[in-house]
Every structure is written in structure tokens, then in C-alpha cells.
Amino acid sequence: MIKTSLYTACFFICAANLQAQNTVSKEIKGRVSSEDGDVAATHVLNSSAQKAAITDIDGFFTVSARLNDTIVFSAVQFQRKEIVVTKEILASKALYITLDPAQNALNEVVVMPFNLSGALGRDMNKMEVDPPLTAASLGLPNAFVEKMTQAERKAFSARSGGPLIAILNAVSGEAKRLRLIRERMAKYTRTEFIRKAYHDSLYVKQLKIPVDKINDFMYFCEVDSSFAALDKKDNLSIWEFMLQKSFAYRKNYELD
């Protein structure tokens, strides 16, 4: 009778220990990777415990979890991925997750014969082709929305993750970092647009800027606050501005 009581007590103690182990949270460290390497600011959400984290620029993350919790990995450019925390994951030193890019593809493409001869010029003249269907031709409301850059996608992902993600971004400084990246990319894109609006020969012959110094000259213009105020489509005003800046640039670098 005493032995039976002891066995019963041991059984309940072991069961209680196992139950306690299952309910104790543990920090899981890991890394997210993808084919293109763009894994910064990927959301890592423990949907069971409503705890979240964000990967750093190299894809590393740390999140609290218990046995059987569900962890969701998501980003705008990736397919959503879920894993269930197992004993092996809790016991491992690192968790490595590979994300697949989001794909919008047709399930099947059917090529119909049109008695083509194989001569491209002749076949194009024979075929009556309807105007291509586009968002603009269909009158869709998003027809003229510009495609977001990589930095803008990350910022949008950070903002659209809900109140919890917004708080995490604000506390960690991630929101500020993404905003600065977005601003730098917008400035770079604008300067690159203006740079390509004029042929290299104009920089060399009219502004007297050597070919290998053109990009440096554009940066010299960019740091001037007046440059940002110019309309990037007003070529005449931009050219007059760069003409004035070329004198200062050549003088600074003794190019005359």
C-alpha cells in the first residue's frame, strides 16, 4: 500500500514537472534567409502568445515561445510561413527559416495557332492585335499608382503590422531607420532621374565636367538644399542651376 502511494506520488510529480516545462516560455533565436537576401524587417509573430519581433538587416531574430506555440513569418515580398514549436526547436541553439518569394503566376498558358509563317515582320502585319489590357485602359482606381521601392515596401510592412508591431518599431527605432532609408532612396532616385535627363556630352562640353566626375558633380548639386526644391521635370531651371554649380565645382577642384 505504501509502495503504491509512493508510485502514485512520483507519477503526479513527474506529470506536474512536464506540465510546468510545457508552459515555461523560452527565447528562441534564429535567422531568416531567402534567395535574394532581402530579409530585413521580416515580421516574426508568436500568434499563440501574441508576441512579436522583427528581423534585423541580416535576418536575425529573437522571440519568446512555448511548446506547441505557432510562429508566423511574414513580409510583403515573401509567402507567409508558419511553424509549430516542438521540443527539438526548444532544445536547439538556433532556428533557420527559408522564405519563398511571393508569386503571382498563371496556372496554365495556352498558345493558340494563327497560321504563322515564322517571319516576324510578315506575321505582325497579318495579325490584328487588340490594344493591350492595362489598369489604365480598364479604368481601375490604382492605374497610375507608382510601384513602391524596396525601402517603401519595408516601411509599409512596418506600418501595416498592427498596433503591436507599430509599438515594437517605435521602441526599437526600426520605424525611424526605415524612414531615413526611404528618404535617402527618394533623394537618390530623383538625382539619378535628373542625371540621365542630359547626355554626358552636355556635362563635358557645356559644364566642363570630366566624364569620370559627373556622378560626383551630381552629389555636389544634391547636397545643396536649393536642388531639392527644383521641379525634376523642369529641365531648363535644373540646367541653369547646374550651370551655376559647375563654376563652383570646377573652382573647388581646380579643374579650370
Results as ranks from 00 to 15, higher is better:
L168Y: 12
V72D: 03
N22M: 07
S160A: 07
T70V: 15
D38C: 12
A175Q: 11
E88V: 02
A175R: 10
R179Y: 15
E222L: 11
A52N: 03
N68E: 09
V84Y: 05
A166D: 14
I89Y: 12
L243G: 01
A40M: 03
T189L: 08
A75L: 13
K245L: 03
A228N: 06
L120N: 01
G30F: 03
A41D: 13
I194V: 12
I71M: 06
V44W: 12
L18F: 03
S160G: 05
Q244R: 13
L116K: 09
R182M: 15
E192W: 10
D231W: 04
T55A: 11
V110R: 08
M127I: 05
F193I: 04
I97A: 01
N22V: 07
P131W: 00
A228G: 10
E146M: 07
A151G: 09
L180D: 11
N17V: 06
N215S: 14
E192C: 01
A16Y: 11
K176Q: 13
P101L: 05
E108W: 05
S201V: 15
E128V: 12
D130V: 02
Q244P: 01
V72S: 02
T191G: 01
A119P: 00
Q77G: 06
V110K: 14
R159V: 09
E222C: 02
L236S: 05
R31E: 14
V145W: 02
S160Y: 00
S117N: 06
K233G: 12
M242F: 15
V85A: 04
E192H: 10
G118F: 02
T62F: 00
L180K: 15
W239T: 01
V171Q: 13
